[in-house]
Structures are given as structure tokens and as C-alpha cells.
């Protein structure tokens, strides 16, 4: 089967500064890399490749030319092919528009590689953090989707069985393929690239598809195709200074703390 794993290029650190004039997050010049949550999706794609004979993994990313580096990082780990969906018209897309771009890209991967069985995402990005993209892409494609996957106990060409971590326990679900999944950190331990892998990835071709190649008009992508605008970004107000609980012995400190908690009606 063919697997598509989607990766995002994000700031490596989330301790970002805000531009006081525009209120926008200043990300230029910050070190960027593969969204840490996506590393588990790449690893799971590679493990499925090892489990299911004949599986190929395509790594897909949306964004500017700089995203080439995160695609190659995934190729260095063992992904087979890379695709960059890139067009100035894509800039400023919200989840609604982005999911359309991704769906068109996945469909084109399916056309050029003889079908796609599974699409894998990380749980969320470390910058936008919505965790909404996976299910939106599922709906765009008309494919089933499951988020928060902690384990894939069974995987074959026609169906997969997944364990979904919920707030109250674990659901086991079976999906008819093709399907879209997002995986949790719990699912695996990502491998590190080998030197040979890194060298090979440098030379591998990465295809680039723009809006025209995907059959997307300018009014359905980017800001025009979005249904959400960011109107303000503000730093989080810092918490006021706290109280240091003092006392001679642990018992004294415990007594002083519990008195405070009692005052606040926690006890």
C-alpha cells in the first residue's frame, strides 16, 4: 500500500516574541524544523512499511521552498518520495483552506503512485496547536478518520484496526481504507537518521506542485479561501508573585500550606 505522511515546518522553539507594531508572531530568523509531533507520524509510517510488504511512503508538506528541509529530514529516515505543495496563493490558509490543499495533494499522490491507503498526521502542530487538520482532511477526501491513535494493532491493504485514546479510556475501531489517522507520542519511539540516509536524502528528487497543478483556483486557498482571521496576538499576562511557605519543620510548612488551601476552600 501507499502511505502519505504529512509534515509541517514550524519554529523549533515556541518561546516566540510578538512584533509590537503588527502584533504578529516574529518567526523570521528563528530556527525551524519538522513539527515535533510529526516525527511520530513519520516513524509510524516507516514501521507500517516494515510490517506490510510492498509499502511505499510519500512525505508531503505545504509551504514555501524552505519546507524542502523537513521533507528531506523525513526522506533521510527512510521515506521513499517527497512532495512539496507550494504556491504564494497558499499563504495565510486556515484549517478549512489548508485541508483542501492537502486533500488535493493526497489525491494527486494517489493518481501518480497507484492509490493511497493511509494518510498519517502528528497529533497537532507546535505552533497552531488546533489538532483539527486530520479530521478536516478526512472529510475533504470523504475518507474515514480517527485522531489520537495510540496503537495500530492490525494493518493490511484493505483495513486497519486502531486504538484511540479518549479522556475516559480506549476505543478500538476498524477502518476501511483509505483512511486518515493522527498518532500520539505514545505510539512509538522515533528513530534517528543514519549518515548514509542523510547523504541519500540530499540527492533524492522532491516534486513541487502549485495551485494550478492541483486544480485549485486562488479564491479557495490562502486568505480568500479561509473562514477564519487572526485579529490579535498578545503575550500571556504573567502571573503575580506568589507566596513562599516557610516553617522550621516539614510539619510546620505542611500546616501553613494546608491553612492557605483551606482558606481558598480547596479543603
Amino acid at each position: 500500500m501507499n502511505i502519505v505522511v504529512c509534515v509541517k515546518r514550524t519554529p523549533a522553539s515556541t518561546s516566540v516574541a510578538l512584533d509590537p507594531q503588527t502584533g504578529a508572531v516574529k518567526t523570521a530568523g528563528l530556527p525551524h524544523g519538522i513539527n515535533p509531533f510529526d516525527e511520530y507520524a513519520v516513524e509510524e509510517a516507516l514501521r507500517l512499511k516494515e510490517r506490510i510488504p510492498g509499502t511505499k511512503v510519500a512525505v508531503l508538506s505545504v509551504g514555501p521552498a524552505e519546507n524542502d528541509e523537513v521533507i528531506r529530514a523525513a526522506l533521510a529516515l527512510g521515506c521513499d518520495t517527497g512532495v512539496l505543495l507550494s504556491d504564494p496563493a497558499f499563504a495565510g490558509s486556515d484549517v478549512y483552506a489548508l485541508s483542501l490543499i492537502l486533500a488535493k495533494g493526497i489525491q494527486k499522490v494517489a493518481e501518480t503512485r497507484g492509490g493511497v491507503g493511509l494518510v498519517l498526521f502528528g497529533r497537532q502542530s507546535n505552533d497552531g496547536e488546533s489538532g483539527h487538520t486530520t479530521a478536516a482532511v478526512g472529510a475533504r477526501l470523504g475518507w474515514p478518520s480517527v485522531i489520537s491513535v495510540r496503537k495500530i494493532p492490525e494493518a493490511a491493504d484493505a483495513a486497519v484496526t486502531v486504538e484511540r485514546l479518549r479522556e475516559d479510556g480506549t476505543d478500538v475501531l476498524q477502518l476501511t481504507l483509505p483512511a486518515v489517522l493522527s498518532v500520539l507520542k505514545e505510539i512509538n519511539e522515533p528513530r534517528l537518521p543514519s549518515l548514509r540516509g542523510k547523504m541519500a536524502a540530499k540527492k533524492m528528487p522532491v516534486e513541487t506542485w502549485g495551485a494550478a497543478a492541483l486544480g485549485l483556483s486562488a479564491d479557495v486557498v490562502g486568505k480568500a479561501g479561509s473562514r477564519m482571521d487572526v485579529v490579535k496576538m498578545a503575550p500571556v499576562p504573567s502571573r503575580g508573585a506568589g507566596v513562599v511557605i516557610t516553617g522550621e519543620t516539614p510539619e510546620d510548612k505542611a500546616q501553613a500550606l494546608v491553612a492557605k488551601l483551606k482558606e481558598a476552600k480547596f479543603i
Binding site: 515556541t14 518561546s15 516566540v16 510578538l18 508572531v25 507546535n126 505552533d127 497552531g128 496547536e129 473562514r227 477564519m228 482571521d229 487572526v230 485579529v231 490579535k232 496576538m233 498578545a234 503575550p235 500571556v236
Partner: peptide, 15 residues
């Protein structure tokens, strides 16, 4: 909240 709780974002829905 966004950026690991470092930023408070306000977004407008306009469909």
C-alpha cells in the same frame, strides 16, 4: 492560546 501557552490569539470566524 497558541505557541505553547505563550501567546493569546483572538480569531474571527467569517464564513
Amino acid at each position: 492560546s497558541a505557541y505553547a501557552g505563550n501567546v493569546v490569539a483572538t480569531v474571527l470566524l467569517r464564513s
